[in-house]
Design a protein around this nucleic acid. Structure first.
Lengths: 215, 215
DNA sequence: TAGATTGTTAATCGATTAACAATC
DNA sequence: TAGATTGTTAATCGATTAACAATC
């Protein structure tokens, strides 16, 4: 850090993905009235190593931790909020207001996490016009218009496997830049659109394997 | 593979987690009537490299691919089913029959994926006795009894953040061996119990970052 | 002071990618 | 045959862990 210390040294993917974990934990500690948290205590609770915690936090925190004390929780929370972009909100739309879609529309975990789902879309006429968690459900034929007029970047797919590809196509043609796909199916998509498959089956696979290996 | 070729050479975590992705894709190809799939074609569709695909498939497939043809899809699917344990089913129970809980109880992605959710639990008396996707909703006070009598290993937490820790404690005391936590909060758990946090916020973080970096 | 904790450099481990001979 | 594809060994890249001086 003696030379080119202005370069931000891009944060590792792995580190970034642990940030919400730290965040939730530190929120807890703050609620308990703690002022400082040491890497040792954090690591033990989150099943990480203290070294890893220090390295992760070094990437994101503007302020150093203090020897014998640890890291000041409040400032650390603020630093993590900046890194995760909890302040600059991304707008998103969701297609498929079934059980999973409704769950995501109401998912408390997104509150303040920088994702704002502005509306849900569905073909079921009975759903049109209702609100879920304050968000309107709109007919699918209004999709492109809304996405373009509000300049929305993120699309969330929560339709059935059979409908996922055509919904994806619709999103791409409307100008969506990133798609978060919850349908348990492979979808084709142009390379200039970001795709994140939320693959619950993959998580399950690793959980089952760990269980089988351990017992 | 000349020496100790009986050793199964444990599958990498990363490889295992890609298996459901391959599986879904190959199901698609089979439906389209394809008999063989080459690593090149698989890689292109799934945004991987052909080398990676071959290496992944080499870990799981009993049968080799054929030069100029690729891998036989049907046998590959069977091999993946074995690896992912889609045959030997794990029983699970779910606590918290809110929107997310209902979504998981009905999630089509689990069909045949080796996870069988046998029942849901909730404290809301209005829910007790109803069935969701054929699965009964039971009162929480019957939890330990059912888990012990059916010898259930996996517990799924879909309650609110505030209730997650106490549900976790209940699961641990009932003898649950692995917990899949969907509450967006840190929970404390003994080291001999497996914990998998399904952290949608973490997924979101990486999606948003990629979006920000790209555009 | 002594000791707990920090931040950083070096070493190891794990995963991906490159290179290439073998095959049909 | 020529060429597309496979499987494997070696090289690179990325992430974690170890070692240790610096700090309060």
């Amino acid at each position: 850090m003696t030379s080119n210390n202005d370069k931000p040294t891009a944060i590792m993917k792995a580190t970034l993905q642990r940030m919400p974990l730290y965040y939730n934990y530190l929120i807890d500690r703050a609620k308990d009235g703690d002022i400082y948290a040491s890497s040792t205590s954090i690591a033990q609770s989150l099943r990480l190593t203290p070294i890893q915690v220090r390295k992760d936090l070094a990437c994101v925190s503007q302020n150093s931790g203090k020897p014998r004390m640890g890291f000041e929780i409040i400032t650390l929370l603020k630093d993590i909020e900046i890194i995760l972009g909890y302040n600059n909100v991304d707008n998103a739309v969701l297609v498929g207001v079934g059980r999973l879609g409704r769950a995501l529309l109401s998912y408390s975990g997104f509150n303040g996490y920088g994702l704002n789902i502005v509306a849900g879309f569905d073909i079921d006429e009975d759903l049109i016009g209702i609100k879920i968690n304050g968000k309107p459900i709109m007919p699918i034929y209004k999709f492109s218009q809304l996405v373009k007029s509000l300049n929305i970047n993120i699309g969330i797919i929560t339709v059935s496997s059979g409908a996922a590809q055509s919904v994806c196509n619709l999103m791409v043609s409307a100008g969506i830049k990133a798609i978060w796909n919850f349908a348990p199916i492979h979808i084709n998509i142009p390379n200039n659109v970001i795709l994140k498959n939320e693959n619950l089956a993959a998580s399950l696979a690793s959980l089952s394997k760990e269980l089988a290996d351990t017992f």
